[in-house]
Amino acid sequence: MRITLLVFLFISLFSSVLKAQTPNDGLMMAERNWCSMLQYSHSAWNEYWEGTDRRYNENIGTVSTQSVMFMTNYGISDRLNVMAAVPYIWTDSDVSYLNGQKGIQDLSVWVKYQPLEHAFNKSTFKIQVTGGLSTPVSNYVGDFLPFSIGLHSKTASLRGILHYVLDKGWYATAQAGHTWRSTMKSDRDAYLLHDELIYSDEVPVPNVFDATGRLGFVNDKFQAEVSYEYMTGLSGDDIRYNDAPFPTNKMQAASLGAFAKYHFGKLAVQAGAGQVFSGRNVGRGTTYSGAVFYFFELPEKKKEAK
């Protein structure tokens, strides 16, 4: 459930909710264009999947995760963008006597490259790839789930994106990515993995595959989108029966999301929502978010951010 939280958080932050030129959408910043974003996100669940069993736990109640994330994106060229993001996260429960956690989580950087853009009669097809790295930037506790603000694991990711857009603005995007995750260092030096006792403070965190399908509309002023997202851990065990989650758990989630975004000159505002509807070892989270964007063009060449 904690992991769920996190994973879901990532999903909502970087895919369904925040839809402007993110590591896994089909949009690119134009050369010398620069965009920064501040986003607030609130995610909560009172049911979670313990393994595949959906349950409520009176001792946990409703767990909420809130975050404020700063993200910035720069167009080195029309085909090459770089991005970075860092969130501050805080967690809490309405009934649990356990302390919520708070802190700066992980710094992420990405490079997004567009190797192909092909114009048809009234539409355009694009292929993009994104490579990313992330690392924890504070010494938060990664295995105090579901209250940890992250898993305290370093990651590397690679994803491919197919983007098809009609000249009138309707578009469809499909993306899939693989995230490699390093082991995390626990404060404990023994833990169960698949019912085997491991005598180490190094905890393996499963790698992740995720995929998204999006349908939306975009023009110079307005963008709206609905999306379906799926993620799964590629190894790992289930939450022990009636016990707390642990970073070794195999997390899966499928969710639906939507957002709308409107531009006012150099500013844009966005509101979005997402809902996990099936999962494994994750919370059945509902997420709302709002974001403000600021666009800026460096002198010389002038292009529209799209």
Binding site: A156, L158, H178, W180, S182, T183, L193, I198, S200, E202, P204, V205, N207, L234, S235
Partner: peptide, 8 residues
């Protein structure tokens, strides 16, 4: 990126 077993 081959999948390697990270279990200590």
């Amino acid at each position: 990126f081959t999948r390697c077993d990270k279990t200590p």
